[in-house]
Design a protein around this nucleic acid. Structure first.
Lengths: 107, 107
DNA sequence: CTTATACATTGACGTTCATCGATACGACTA
DNA sequence: TAGTCGTATCGATGAACGTCAATGTATAAG
């Protein structure tokens, strides 16, 4: 999954080309999984705006490899940023990247 | 695919419950396919705001069954409305449903 | 009635993907 | 150095999904 980029005008401004549609679909695909949405939600609502990965398996009811997999996808796409502090990985939301996807749905 | 409903506060207002995350993910899953995004884009930019399904296979480079499949999904979810006129099916965007998904991404 | 056209449905195929157990890696600690 | 803990990677598995050919259904035209 490559980084989310501003790939197109709002969906309803002009017809999407095939390449634009591929990139935009890849972005929304990241939001199409309940576990990833809950991760984004938990990080966004975390105290001081950041969350330790160590808390997630218990809160989500998913295994540690599964959580790590989703965190990797979200970080590679730029929706989350990672800050490694010693053994722990802390994550923050990247609002600008979320906004790119939201803007595509402006009517 | 059931109808998209306003299932939650904005993603970043409070942590998503499991059921809310499932419904929201189902909505974004509809936007996670390039063919469906292009359909939405073509309908949204069509003259008089409506598009005949008969034009889509050629414009999308997809077979008629594939296009019919995606139109069914988008219509069942409420993102499109269908108006059958004789042999032809005409589609319109339902902006309120699109707005539900966009609102979940408000920061 | 026969033919042609628009759209839906069925069935199958190949791919993608979420998930987990096992294991490896890296950092702190005693 | 040895041990523990947090995280990443590997490999496998089962389910979901996009696609199309074939077929069915309905409407219109001749």
């Amino acid at each position: 999954m490559s980084t989310i980029e501003r790939c197109c005008e709002p969906l309803l401004n002009e017809p999407l080309g095939a390449g634009q549609a591929d990139r935009l679909a890849a972005g929304f695909k990241l939001l199409s999984d309940p576990t990833r949405l809950r991760i984004l939600s938990l990080v966004a609502n975390a105290p001081a705006g950041e969350l330790c990965a160590c808390d997630l398996p218990a809160q989500l009811g998913r295994s540690q490899p599964t959580v790590s997999h989703h965190l990797t996808l979200l970080t590679e796409a730029g929706l989350l940023s990672r800050d490694q502090r010693g053994k722990w990985a802390w994550f923050r939301i990247e609002p600008d990247r979320v906004a790119i996807l939201r803007a595509a749905l402006d009517l």
